[in-house]
Design a protein around this nucleic acid. Structure first.
Lengths: 267, 267
DNA sequence: ATCCGGGGCCGTACGCCGTACCGTATGCCC
DNA sequence: GGGCATACGGTACGGCGTACGGCCCCGGAT
C-alpha cells in the first residue's frame, strides 16, 4: 500500500528520465514506445479512473504492449509517478501580467494550484516525499517565487511563505476532493452520508459530553450546505494566511534597511 | 495502492466498533481476541515498522492467531485504520490551564498535534477522506474549539480557523517526516541525497533558466543545514497563520456587537 | 552478402497483498 | 445431553509490482 519509494533509486537515472536525456533510440518498427507516450497514457488513466486504477498492467494494456515493456523506459512505478507529477506541473499557467502586487500574485498562484488539484485529483496522492526536481517543478517554483520577490523578505522567508501558501492549498484541496472522492466510492452524496450517521451524532450531542463540538459542528454543517464547506475553508484560510504574510511584509518594509538583526518570528 | 475506502462500508457497523458497542462476548478459552488487542498490536507494528509493514497477516501473526480471525472483530483493513486513528487522537494531551489567551492555546494545540505526528508518523498516511467520528476525535475537536471560543468569531469561523491551523500542522509535519522517512528508506542522509543530485542542480543553476529557484533554493538549503529546514517552515508558517487569525479577531472585537452583516473575508 | 551484437519487446513466474468462503470446534443455554 | 450460535482459521482467488531470461529485429562491421 501507498507510494513509499523503494530503497534502490538511482538519482542519475531518475533525473535522466525527468529531463528526457538519452531517450532510447526509437526503432522504426514495433509499437514505438517512449517515456512520453507512457506518461501520457498513465495520466489519462489516473484522470479517468483514479490513482488506484493506475497499475503497470493497466498502462501497458492502454498502450497495447506487454506489461514488462514499460520497464524498458521507466525503472519502476515510483519513477513513473514522479514523471507524471512533473508533467502536471508543466500544465500550470504562469501569466506574467498579474496586476495587484504580491498579494494578488500569491492568490493567483494559490488558485492556479487548486485548479490543478481539481483537474487531476490523484496528484494529491502522488505527491509525497521529496520534491521531484524535474524541469517543470523547477519552472513552477521559480515562477511562484516571483510573487514574493522584492517585498523585503529574505530568501529563506520567501521560500517559507511559498511553502505555507501551497501547503494550505493542498490541505484545502484534499478536503474539497475527499468529498467528491467518497461520493464516487460510496455512491452516497455528502448529505446522505451525514444522514446515515445522524442517529449516532444526535446521541453524542444529547449526551452533553461534547458541547462545543456538537454546536459548532452542526452550525458548520448547516451554514453552507455540506458540499460548499470545503470551498469556504479554502477561501477563508487563504485570506487569513495572506493577512499573516501581510503583517510580516509590513514589518519588513517599515524598518527600511536595517539589513538583519530582526528575529521577526517571535509571534 | 493507497487507502481508499471500499464502497461497502456500513456506517452503523463502523461506529459500533469505534465506540466499542457490543464487543463480542469474550469466550473464556482461546486467544481471547478483542478490538482493543487488535488495535494495540496494529499500532505497535505501525509505530515500529511503518505503515507499509502493517498488513493483516502481520497483525494476526503478532497476536498469535490465524489471519482471518481478525476479521471477526473488524470488517476490513480500512475500518481497522479508522480505529487506530481514533485511538491516537485519544493520546493527545488536553491541558485545561494553558495561559495566554487564544493565541497561546491555538499554538499549544498546534504543537501537540505536531508531536502526535512525530511519535506516530504513519498517522499522516492513515488520515484520509472523511473524519472518523470516533469518541476521541470528537473530544479532540471539542477541546480544540475551546481555544477559539469567546473571541468574537462565529461558529463557522471557529471551525475554519481550526481547520486552517491543523492543516498547516499536517503540511509541516509531512515535510518534517518525509526527510526522516526517506533517510530510512534510501539509507542516505538528507545531505547525502542533495549531494548525489548536486551535479544536476549545478547544471540548472548555471543554465540561468531558473534564476529565482536556484538562488532561493540554495539559500534555503544552506541557511539551516538541511534537516532543520522543515522545522523552520513549521514555526514560520505557524506564526504567520496566527498573525492572520489575529487580524480577523481584532476586526471582530473592534466592531463591538453588530451581530452579522460583516462579510469578513473579502480580503 | 553475411554475421553479430545490442537492445526493444514481452511471457512467465514469484512473493506479496486483502479478503471471500466455508469448515471446525467450543462454550452456553435449554 | 443436545443443539446452536459464534470465535477461530485453512485454503484459495484475483490482483499487485517486478525479476529474469528469451526472442527477434535492426545497424554496423566484416
Amino acid at each position: 500500500m501507498s507510494n513509499e519509494r523503494k530503497g534502490k533509486i538511482d538519482p542519475a537515472r531518475s533525473l535522466a528520465i525527468l529531463w528526457r536525456t538519452r531517450e532510447p533510440t526509437s526503432r522504426s518498427a514495433g509499437p514505438g514506445l517512449s517515456v512520453d507516450r507512457i506518461v501520457r497514457a498513465a495520466i489519462e488513466i489516473a484522470d479517468a479512473e483514479g490513482i488506484d486504477a493506475l497499475t503497470m498492467r493497466r498502462v501497458s494494456e492502454a498502450l497495447g504492449v506487454g506489461t514488462m515493456s514499460v520497464y524498458t523506459y521507466v525503472p519502476g512505478k515510483a519513477e513513473l509517478l514522479d514523471v507524471m507529477v512533473d508533467t502536471l506541473y508543466g500544465e500550470i499557467r504562469r501569466p506574467v501580467d498579474v496586476p495587484g502586487g504580491w498579494r494578488a500574485r500569491l492568490e493567483q498562484a494559490a488558485r492556479e494550484n487548486l485548479e490543478l488539484y481539481r483537474v487531476h485529483p490523484w496528484l494529491l496522492r502522488a505527491e509525497t516525499s521529496r520534491p521531484v526536481l524535474g524541469p517543470n517543478m523547477l519552472a513552477k517554483y521559480d515562477y511562484e517565487l516571483g510573487a514574493v520577490a522584492g517585498i523585503g523578505l529574505d530568501d529563506v522567508e520567501m521560500d517559507a511563505v511559498l511553502t505555507l501558501v501551497l501547503g494550505h492549498v493542498k490541505s484545502a484541496a484534499r478536503a474539497v476532493l475527499d468529498v467528491a472522492d467518497l461520493e464516487r466510492e460510496t455512491g452516497m452524496t455528502d448529505g446522505q452520508w451525514w444522514q446515515s450517521h445522524a442517529p449516532w451524532l444526535e446521541r453524542f450531542m444529547k449526551s452533553g459530553s461534547y458541547p462545543m463540538a456538537s454546536r459548532v459542528g452542526s452550525a458548520a454543517g448547516e451554514a453552507h450546505g455540506a458540499a460548499y464547506g470545503p470551498e469556504y475553508a479554502f477561501e477563508f484560510g487563504l485570506q487569513r494566511v495572506l493577512d499573516g504574510v501581510a503583517v510580516i511584509v509590513a514589518k519588513r518594509s517599515a524598518t527600511a534597511e536595517p539589513d538583519r538583526s530582526d528575529p521577526a518570528d517571535a509571534g
